[in-house]
């Protein structure tokens, strides 16, 4: 891992270290301050509330531990999501932080995640004549089934491992895409 360059990043890197031994709820600003070697006050200045910290930590983990493989076609998209689910399974504590952060009231920017834009771009290429209503329906479904929330729900609520979660994801994607007529898919 590279050396953190600024205080905000140093706080996130230390929070990630603490996450290996305790849950996010059990990481107090006091403990975090001790870990970084700064004052509690400095943490409050960077992250005025715990939701701010959670959102920033999730973004940092996402970029550092779960980079999304690029995809253009639907089959690349499936492969990219499988890889992510396997990465989540290997670092569940980190993945839960992502699932949780994606559920809170937005605190930082309200920008959609990169994967949302990538799914929309994929559909524009794969199905250029798709009407706007169906495009949103399909994009939203694919986005939601590829989310860390889906992984977290199936792991906690259904006791599934990464391979089984990938199967459930494929089944859901098949069902969604089957709703579209064959003729809308661009011919290669």
């Amino acid at each position: 891992m590279e050396e953190p360059v600024d205080t905000a990043t140093a706080i996130l890197a230390s929070a990630a270290v603490l996450l290996r031994e305790r849950t996010f709820d059990d990481i107090s600003y006091r403990a975090l301050a001790d870990e970084v070697g700064i004052s509690e006050r400095t943490i409050y200045r960077q992250y005025p509330t715990r939701p701010h910290l959670l959102a920033a930590l999730s973004n940092w983990i996402e970029q550092t531990c779960f980079p999304l493989p690029p995809f253009v076609t639907v089959s690349d998209f499936r492969a990219a999501v499988h890889e992510r689910f396997r990465a989540f399974d290997a670092s569940p504590a980190y993945a839960y932080v992502g699932a949780r952060a994606s559920a809170i009231s937005p605190t930082l920017d309200a920008e959609p995640a990169y994967i949302t834009r990538a799914i929309e771009a994929m559909l524009d290429v794969a199905a250029p004549t798709l009407n706007q209503r169906d495009r949103r329906r399909v994009a939203a479904s694919l986005r939601y089934f590829s989310s860390s929330m889906f992984w977290a729900r199936l792991r906690t609520g259904f006791d599934l491992d990464a391979a089984e979660i990938c199967d459930a994801f494929d089944g859901a994607v098949d069902a969604v895409l089957a709703r579209l007529p064959d003729a809308i898919w661009a011919k290669p």
Binding site: S102, A139, R143, M149, L154, A172, A175
Partner: peptide, 22 residues
């Protein structure tokens, strides 16, 4: 597969994600 997909859709996570991401 069917139960997992329907449980996921029948949850508040759907509302949060569709609102926030789209």
């Amino acid at each position: 597969t069917v139960i997992a997909a329907l449980s996921h859709l029948d949850s508040v996570g759907t509302w949060v994600t569709y609102r926030r991401e789209f």
